[in-house]
Design a protein around this nucleic acid. Structure first.
Lengths: 184, 184
DNA sequence: CATTAATTTCTGTAATTACTGAAATAGCAG
DNA sequence: CTGCTATTTCAGTAATTACAGAAATTAATG
């Protein structure tokens, strides 16, 4: 075991703690953190040792990370074990996670809403509820459309949009940088 | 109880199912869904009945919804019970949730990263790990900056940015709407 | 100040989710 | 085919989280 609490370990540990807020489990997050900081790929055995996790747990967690698309398997010559490495580009990683979250969290919700709206229209009873469902659906569709367009830009342009910020303010012609007094 | 499986109920039920993906619990989601579809505010008793949940559960869930800022308490004249209603504007609701998630999920992570980077610099051992932590931190800070600027726009302008989409493509001067062949 | 209604806090239980260790499977080397 | 190593699946256990019901608190009314 490496010297207790190197700052790499700090990071791995903290990343693991954050995990619950992000809706993934600790093992998965810790493994990802470890791989992200590691210059060379690691195999399951090494990960299992470093983090004191059961091999089976490591195996499953690695599978999940691969499903998310942020960890890849690579091979060393003359070694038949699987080695794993994290996607290195943070922007790429961010987009990948965003895409996955959209797929898992937003898309099914949109689909469900569409069905609810359709069904509600058919039996057409409560106009108020219908209107509310519709505006929710509209929002989700607008967001999805925007996301789709951003995604169609080259990574370079995506970064550019992100860095534009202030300039956007002018383009969009906003005179009043409103100061919402809401809550607190 | 309304006729089994009106589409309002469908919505409430489905919303409850989605909840786990969104990282909140079923009761909270169901209550929010119910309030969102309800034209008039409801009190805890009514909610408890409608959804067959324990009063205490309803009470706690309502508190959580208020903490999220998407449900408010209102009062009827001559009735000392608390009545609750959902924020009605979906855009407002969206921003509120985004803000909260940033506060709970992103900000602490950023803070933690800053500490890790500082500490790592101090003891300055593994340059590779340090570089990776730095680029992660950079990304988070960039996103936070962008978010801050968007938030400073008036709601109207925010919507405008959202609807711009295609136009942004030109402003940002992207010629090649890249088609990333990544995965499937 | 006592009574009653409304709400919250607390405690135990149920349900879910995460994890381990053992057993099974897959795949390569001789 | 046989033995060996890496990986996965599975079944049981531990830990966490969600929830119900009772008890306690708060607040209003007469």
């Amino acid at each position: 075991m490496p010297p207790a609490h190197s700052s790499e370990e700090q990071f791995v540990l903290h990343w693991g703690e954050m995990s619950s807020r992000w809706g993934i489990n600790r093992s998965v997050a810790q493994i990802h953190a470890l791989l992200y900081l590691s210059e060379e790929p690691l195999n399951a055995e090494q990960i299992s040792e470093r983090l004191s996790l059961a091999r089976s747990n490591v195996s499953n967690s690695l599978r999940e990370l691969q499903a998310w698309g942020i960890v890849r398997v690579v091979h060393q010559l003359g070694d038949r074990r699987d080695y794993f490495e994290s996607v290195s580009d943070v922007w790429d990683m961010f987009l990948t996670i965003l895409e996955q979250r959209k797929r898992r969290e937003v898309d099914p919700t949109t689909e469900m809403l569409r069905e609810c709206v359709a069904q509600h229209e058919a039996q057409g009873r409560d106009a108020f509820a219908l209107a509310r469902m519709r505006s929710l659906l509209e929002l989700l569709e607008m967001l999805a459309a925007w996301y789709g367009q951003m995604r169609s830009l080259s990574p370079a342009s995506q970064r550019r949009v992100l860095k534009m910020g202030r300039k956007l303010t002018k383009i969009v012609g906003d005179v009043r940088p409103i100061r919402k007094g809401r809550r607190s």
